[in-house]
Every structure is written in structure tokens, then in C-alpha cells.
Amino acid sequence: MSADRPIGEDELHAYLDGVLDEGRQAAVRRYLDARPEERARLAAYRRQGEALREALAPVADQPLPAELNLNAIVERRRTTLAARRRVAAAAAILCIGGLSGWFGRAAVAPPARGIDALGREAVDNHAVYASDTLRPVELASDQRATLIRWVSERLDAPVQAPDLQGAGYRFLGGRLVTTPNGPAALFVYEGASADRLTVMVRPMQIDRNRSMSERSYGTLEGVTWSKDGLGFSVVAPRASTDLRPVAEQVRRQASFS
């Protein structure tokens, strides 16, 4: 009789889980009838299973959140794939464009070195440093001589920090700044209403002698010129002052140096 075959632990679990071969069920029942402690053990397993099912049942009964809607997931994937294909196509076009742009760069984009570049650089530096309330300058007005020596040496040109008291601007100090065309000296001034004005000076490779021109850049305004290979740009917020006379003062003082 098959009941004589020893009962395995696996069979007890299979019995518990209702997957034991029909032919072995009677044998397991007889086995358990004879062993109260084993019966108690299986009863405990059965209880823990019931408790687990009961504890976790609410999750499966909840309505599905929108992000688990399969149709939405399929749809999202479709649009993502389509978008990815578009991105890939766009990237291919950009790549072609980028390569031809790179090889054609000399033809379409002359290097920004001249007086227009100077104006742009001055505005950029003004935007960064003039708005700095804590440390607009690296060397303050009381170190004027050190500042002048430093920037003149780095620019390899005699640079003066103009005195703009007459125009109502107090000298705060200055610093060396970077431009795509090498170092430049930036001098920062403050007006009566704490408005800031900057004067930037750098050597010019091209446009070495250009007359004064005015230009606005968003909220800022700049007057730019060059003389004997040195470029100047005076920048201030638009309408804070009439820049022309200030620029004239800078130019006059520079030609005396």
C-alpha cells in the first residue's frame, strides 16, 4: 500500500497548498491524524497564509491608479518611440548641419575680434561684475596704483583708470577679466544713486582705430571706440546717464597717458 511510503516535507506543503496528488492525500491525512504536533504545525502555516492573504487583499481590491492603466502605458510608449524617432532624425540633421557648419565656419562666421566683439564683451562683464554688491572689484580704489600696474602688465599696454568724479561717478576699483580675445581691464564706478558704470579696456588685433559708436544691449548701453590698438568700452544701464560725455572724458584722459 502506498501509505507505507514515508511522507515528505514537500508533500505536507503540497497538501497544505492543495496541490498534492489525490493518491497521496489519504496517506498524509493518516500521517497527520497520528501526529498532533505536526498537525498543529500545518495549522499554524495555514493560519499564517490566511493572515497574509487577508492583510494584503485590500491592495488588490483597490481601483487601479491611472499610471497603471495599460492602455495609457501602451499609448505613452507609442508617443515616446515616435518622439525618439523624431529626436534621432533631428539629431541626424543637426549632425549634418553641425559638420557642415564646422567645416564652413570660416566662411560664415568671421572670428569676433573687432570693435563689435569688444562692445559685447564689455556688456557681458558689466552684467557679471557691476551687479555684484559684495565684491564688484578685486582691487579697490585705495589700491589704484597696484591695480594699474597689474592690468598694464597683463595687457602689455599702458592702461589708466580714468577719473570720472566730474561726471558724478566714484571709482570703486577694478580687476582683470577674461574675453575671447584675451585679458581685459575692467574698472567699476558708482553713481549718486548707486548705479554702476564700467569701463573696459583691452588691446585690439583688428579695428585698432575706430571712432566712437553707441549701442544698446537689452537694458544696458555701451559706447565703444579704439585708439592706437587699445579698445575702450563704457557701459551703464540704459537711461541712467548720458553716456557720451562720460565716454568723452575717458577718451580725453586716455590720450594724455
Binding site: 487601479l64 495599460l70 501602451v74
Partner: peptide
Amino acid sequence: MTDMGQLIEPVIPGLRRYANAL
């Protein structure tokens, strides 16, 4: 999709339950 939906959707509540338990 219909084939996939019919096979996957009935399993989702159980998947949530398993994920929550883990």
C-alpha cells in the same frame, strides 16, 4: 494590444499586491 491587454490586465491587481508586500 487586445491580445496583450487580455493577458496582462487581469494580473495587474496581483502584481500590485506582490509589490506592496515586498
